[in-house]
Amino acid sequence: MMQTAEMLKVFNRHRGDAIVVPGRGGRHWVTISDKPSRDVPLGDPAMGGHAMFSFGLALARPQNKIVLFDSEGDILMSMGVFPTIADLAPPNFYHFMLDNECYATTGGQPVPNAKNVAYDEIARGSGYKRTYKFTTVEEFTGGIGDVMAAPGPVFVWLKVLPEVINEAIGRRPRWNTRTKDQVVADMRKELGIQV
């Protein structure tokens, strides 16, 4: 299994100009990214929604690569996104999923059938043409170039170490320095989106 931060540092070298929705990797990504106006760190507006948000962004911005770092807990809440995404199949959508086999932010309880769900097979069976699974940083380093070089939609399953948090929510350090409104406004300004 990988350290999420180490994996994200490797990804950053392959990011190009992609828009990145860091999902539950956000607290690491904000310290790694050197293009914050192309980042969309939203925290957790409502669990299970990051995939549809990012997919919607990909539909609205076909000229930009959209990269999402989803989580297995989110996907388990919204597995129906797979056929929806595969149906419209936006070629600019790159769907990464962090799998730490648990609900880390609530104390580390295991997700259902944590060690036995084949997320790549579910994505492929739902219609994703390309899927990958990486368990180590070395594997990821060797494969990320191919992942980003070809069109999406692509699903990338990443086995990462849990970073369990037991601190009460009110006492956790706040990593996101921008409001959701500011994040979206910054991205729109960067991309020249008029609304």
Binding site: A46, G48, M52, F53, G56, L57, L59, A60, G80
Partner: peptide, 26 residues
């Protein structure tokens, strides 16, 4: 119009947020 079929209605709201963020009108 682009039709975006969802499998549960709650997913329509996060999808709409993404489309709107990108300048579309959901």
């Amino acid at each position: 119009l682009t039709l975006v079929p969802v499998t549960r209605e709650g997913l329509a709201f996060s999808g709409a947020a993404g489309i709107a963020a990108g300048g579309g009108k959901p």
